[in-house]
Design a protein around this nucleic acid. Structure first.
Length: 257
DNA sequence: GTTGAGCGTT
């Protein structure tokens, strides 16, 4: 009774799909089944999970046998508090095969090109990356470093989530700006390397801080060390450190980037 | 251990 999703899509031709959003990450199909089954005949329940972690994504798909029951469930379960969280029940708009769905029911795969790319919902789908991974696999299948690739995927995955939200609506520009600026700089330098030398002049801030440009390299680290409260007894002997092949980069002491 | 707009698997 709880093998939903394991048998794959039974038949979406005579079933109405409902999209359940705002569910907890711990909510499973078994937990939603009794809830939705109470309002109608649930044919199948599917909850997308991460491919890597296998954790729930936070939304589920409930397929009803009849639209009236689905409608009832939407009206009754929409806004219901499940597991301490208010869930959002609504008819699915899209199908697994990019099919158009009306009221949760599949109307047709795709009407040739009548709607073209209608600006229905300009939301980004990170899921596409998954499919892309497959291609990558083929490309770099000669790689013998499995863990390396895995690590990379992990990093990307973690980023994909935060990025998608950050781009959507997030006043957190601390990171985005930094990255964006960096990117811009890179492009600028690459493009106007011999054309517009004055690109970084226009700064939003007229004058930030007349930091002393005459910062002795030898004094800079010393001062910071003491001011920081880190006496660094080992650093007391610069000679030893030098001899330690520490290789103190001759770059500016105060490096912003 | 964390998260929170959204649309799906054999």
């Amino acid at each position: 009774m709880s093998h939903f999703g394991r048998s794959g899509p039974p038949d979406i031709s005579d079933t109405y799909s409902l999209l359940i959003l705002n569910i907890t990450f711990r909510t499973t199909a078994d937990d939603l089944f009794p809830l939705f089954d109470k309002y109608g005949k649930v044919v199948d329940i599917f909850i997308p999970k991460d491919r890597r972690t296998g954790d729930s994504r936070g939304f589920a798909f409930v397929r009803y046998k009849y639209a009236d029951e689905a409608q009832k469930a939407v009206d009754r379960l929409d806004g219901r508090v499940v597991d301490g969280r208010e869930i959002t029940v609504q008819f699915a708009k899209y199908g697994p095969n990019a099919e158009r769905i009306h009221k949760g029911k599949v109307i047709e795969p795709v009407s040739r090109s009548r709607y073209r790319s209608r600006s229905r919902s300009p939301r980004r789908r990170h899921r596409d990356d998954y499919y892309r991974d497959r291609d990558y696999s083929k490309r770099s299948r000669s790689r013998s470093s499995d863990r390396y690739e895995r690590d990379r995927y992990r990093g990307k995955d973690r980023d994909y989530r935060r990025r998608s939200r950050s781009r959507s609506a997030s006043p957190d520009y601390s990171k985005g700006q930094g990255r964006g600026r960096y990117d811009d700089d890179r492009r600028s330098g690459s493009r106007s390397m011999s054309a517009s030398p004055a690109r970084r002049s226009p700064s939003p801030r007229k004058s930030l801080y007349p930091r002393k440009a005459s910062y002795p390299r030898v004094e800079s680290p010393d001062r910071r060390s003491r001011g920081r409260g880190s006496p660094s007894p080992r650093s007391v002997s610069p000679r030893g450190r030098l001899a330690d092949s520490r290789s103190p980069s001759p770059r500016n002491s105060d490096v912003d980037e």
